Amino acid sequence: MTFTKLLREENNDIFEEIFTHPFVKGIGEGVVPSESIAHYIKADYEYLNAFMHVYGIAMAKSSKREDIEFFNEQVTFVLHSEVHPHHNFCEHIGMRYEELQGYPLPPTADHYIKHMIYHANQGSLGEIIAALLPCPWTYLEIGNTLMKQYQPTESHPFHPWISFYADGEIETLTNHLRSRLDSLAAEASESEQQKMKEAFRKSCQLEWLFWEMSLSCEEWPTAGVTAK
């Protein structure tokens, strides 16, 4: 069994919880509260900005030109392609994308970004990829799961969103990251592999929490809240 197959098996519990999360199911059913969609976009816009910064750190830690080229291409992908599902959500709730940019991060998104930045700065290239991989991997499987369960037509309000993540480009990205992580894990020590596993699982957990944060419109406690 490859390292990433093992990771998928060990974290199947979280993947299944993501597939059945009310926000994710709502995308398939075409019914998600507008305020939750807006909260998601506000946080995900900043999250993707951070994702590009982590790709930049990965480039700096790469010794192979092929890795540098790959991470550079992914920055371009996030900048110019991964905005499309955001536009689908924006059109559905009748808001311009620009209106939902530049907001402070809610607690979960803040934690997720700092988790990735920590592994990017402190970890190996394998650890960085392990922290990044759950994002495209869970979205790929979400897209495929929703496409299979709901078989959305072009009249479905979230057809562009579902189609984007069920598309071959996300699968290609996921498979490339998996292949590279498998190669790095094969050369890593047992302790380094454990760090990769921990980074991967926490990112999976934070993916689920990101959906929960969006649905509940999570905010920081107010200044008047005191610890008990």
Rank of each mutant, 00 (worst) to 15 (best):
residue 73 E to G: 04
residue 163 S to G: 07
residue 177 L to N: 04
residue 160 P to F: 10
residue 32 V to D: 02
residue 48 L to V: 09
residue 197 K to L: 10
residue 210 F to I: 04
residue 130 A to T: 08
residue 165 Y to P: 03
residue 18 I to W: 11
residue 27 I to Q: 02
residue 40 Y to T: 06
residue 98 E to C: 01
residue 173 L to W: 07
residue 88 N to G: 04
residue 149 Q to N: 09
residue 163 S to T: 02
residue 47 Y to M: 01
residue 101 Q to D: 10
residue 137 W to H: 09
residue 49 N to E: 02
residue 166 A to W: 10
residue 1 M to N: 10
residue 71 F to H: 11
residue 110 D to P: 00
residue 92 H to R: 13
residue 204 C to Q: 13
residue 56 G to N: 05
residue 86 H to F: 07
residue 171 E to G: 15
residue 41 I to T: 09
residue 199 A to V: 05
residue 152 P to Q: 12
residue 162 I to Y: 03
residue 83 V to D: 09
residue 164 F to E: 10
residue 37 I to S: 01
residue 79 L to H: 09
residue 93 I to A: 15
residue 153 T to G: 15
residue 228 K to H: 04
residue 28 G to Y: 03
residue 213 M to F: 05
residue 49 N to Y: 06
residue 71 F to C: 07
residue 139 Y to A: 06
residue 83 V to K: 14
residue 201 R to D: 03
residue 62 S to Y: 14
residue 125 L to G: 00
residue 183 S to D: 06
residue 19 F to V: 10
residue 223 A to R: 10
residue 202 K to W: 05
residue 198 E to S: 13
residue 106 P to Y: 02
residue 40 Y to C: 04
residue 31 V to H: 11
residue 195 K to E: 10
residue 15 F to L: 15
residue 51 F to I: 08
residue 173 L to F: 00
residue 197 K to A: 12
residue 200 F to A: 06
residue 96 R to Y: 13
residue 37 I to V: 14
residue 212 E to K: 12
residue 27 I to W: 00
residue 196 M to F: 06
residue 125 L to M: 07
residue 151 Q to I: 03
residue 72 N to Y: 14
residue 217 C to H: 07
residue 115 H to M: 14
residue 188 A to W: 02
residue 47 Y to K: 12
residue 148 K to Q: 10
residue 171 E to S: 11
residue 180 R to F: 08
residue 19 F to P: 00
residue 171 E to F: 13
residue 90 C to W: 01
residue 64 K to G: 11
residue 195 K to I: 00
residue 57 I to L: 01
residue 190 E to H: 06
residue 24 V to I: 15
residue 18 I to E: 02
residue 206 L to T: 02
residue 216 S to R: 11
residue 56 G to F: 05
residue 65 R to V: 15
residue 86 H to E: 15
residue 66 E to I: 11
residue 53 H to E: 14
residue 221 P to V: 15
residue 27 I to S: 03
residue 157 P to D: 11
residue 36 S to C: 11
residue 131 A to P: 00
residue 44 D to P: 05
residue 220 W to V: 00
residue 164 F to W: 08
residue 213 M to A: 13
residue 209 L to I: 06
residue 207 E to I: 09
residue 46 E to C: 07
residue 226 T to A: 04
residue 66 E to Q: 03
residue 213 M to G: 00
residue 110 D to T: 01
residue 52 M to N: 14
residue 9 E to M: 01
residue 71 F to E: 00
residue 179 S to G: 11
residue 58 A to D: 13
residue 92 H to F: 12
residue 43 A to S: 09
residue 140 L to H: 14
residue 156 H to A: 01
residue 26 G to V: 08
residue 199 A to F: 09
residue 147 M to I: 01
residue 40 Y to R: 02
residue 99 E to W: 09
residue 195 K to F: 04
residue 95 M to H: 09
residue 95 M to K: 15
residue 154 E to V: 06
residue 202 K to Q: 09
residue 72 N to R: 13
residue 129 I to T: 11
residue 182 D to M: 02
residue 18 I to T: 02
